[in-house]
Write a protein that binds this DNA or RNA. Structure first.
Lengths: 231, 231
DNA sequence: GAGTGGTCTAGACCACCCT
DNA sequence: GGGTGGTCTAGACCACTCA
């Protein structure tokens, strides 16, 4: 009996052929049926290998027209955005957080637009600071829709960080994330112990549940933070 | 005959049960065999659904011990890092690029460390500016190992951007990517028409091929750039 | 209309890992 | 040792899309 061929073997063989120029950019690969015959395995195995390579940006697949080599393999990166507690403790440091301000107020216009809220929707506005061994780690400015989560009004966010409460309360939601560089505001500079105008790495994230807006957050990391690719 | 159950149906049903609290954080799900019986489908279908949910950060799977609900679903984002030409033209703007400087020089110490190069390895050092409709879009500082790619010494990078040449020459390589916020240097500020010290979004990427260092690049986007999640 | 990938089935064997 | 997920097979039908 032949040695069973794994979809991993096929993936690395196809990648090697791409790197070696057997199949050049824009060319069409043999069909799944042909490949399964030449590898001596089932078509499902070839299918999984090619599907994952397409997912990773190397190939383009279309019914009827077949599998083609992408002209420029797509550069993509996957990044994890952990809770600050996990990130800090993962570095072996002691985590702490602090609630800097709390207010119930109507959503400002930019926020209503960003989340698709009605005008002057009631929101809980929180500002927090996360620390690693006492040093400022991340500044968080969060808005929570009191229409979607009325119970948020009664939570003591000095005890539990808003992100941790939200992930426990509403774990499975649709999100939209952006990354950018911003100049530290006066408030951020004071909290993060840097100068106003310093460059800060910012993550903004909007969250919906079942199409309804839930929360929006701006996370600003301490100066010099670098987010690295996972895996 | 029963309606065929798709792995997508199972994914969304499992997600709905997670959101609804049927299976709480840390709990163990029924086995694949049990689920396939209750859904009335093959185990392979359940397997694909659960495998993808684990991949997306909702579940944790281990042989023998089964499938568990992650205590905090992992927040992750997938981002694409296209060639500036594709990004600019995708916005409907006209792309152009410009070679600001070119030099053959030994690798500085920090670069040798980052890539795992021998001391004073011969490198090609390039600085480019990418434009969208004439406006500065991205500043690129690139180092190419002449040991790994001697032919780079003879390429006219004023005609072809280094990234485009590299992706055509050496498309399938191992990469390590980081994202951060930096203060514009004098050179970046002049090229990007901003002020020195302005916050810029920076992507750094190191590339190897078969374990050998190939190239390192720092991409600094124009002020105000925001990288959004794909999908 | 016909060819290609997309998916599902039913069954099987295996690797890993907890007890 | 035994239970669980990981994977492969052989076959089938379907959906999409190009000619």
């Amino acid at each position: 009996m032949p040695v069973p061929v794994s979809f991993r073997d096929i993936k690395s063989d196809v990648l090697a052929r791409l790197a070696g120029g057997t199949w050049g950019p824009g060319e069409t690969l043999p069909t799944e049926a042909e490949l399964s015959a030449s590898y001596g395995c089932a078509r499902a195995t070839v299918n999984r290998a090619l599907r994952e390579l397409a997912e990773e940006g190397y190939l383009e697949r279309k019914r009827r027209s077949g599998t083609r080599v992408r002209r420029a393999p797509e550069r993509q990166a996957r990044v994890a955005i952990p809770q600050p507690r996990d990130e800090v403790e993962g570095q072996g440091a002691r985590y702490a957080h602090q609630l800097l301000s709390r207010a119930e107020q109507p959503a400002p216009a930019w926020l209503a637009t960003r989340l698709g809220l009605g005008p002057a929707a009631p929101m809980l506005h929180l500002v927090c600071l996360h620390r690693a061994d006492g040093a400022p780690f991340q500044h968080e400015e969060r808005w929570i829709s009191l229409a979607a989560l009325p119970s948020a009004g009664g939570v003591d966010f000095a005890r539990q960080a808003p992100g941790e409460w939200l992930v426990a309360t509403m774990p499975y939601s649709e999100v939209e994330v952006g990354f950018s560089a911003v100049a530290a505001t006066a408030g951020q500079a004071a909290a993060l112990r840097c100068s106003k105008g310093d460059p800060l790495f910012q993550v903004d994230r909007a969250t919906w549940f079942g199409g309804r807006p839930v929360t929006f957050v701006r996370l600003c990391y301490h100066r010099g933070y670098r987010m690295a690719t996972r895996t």
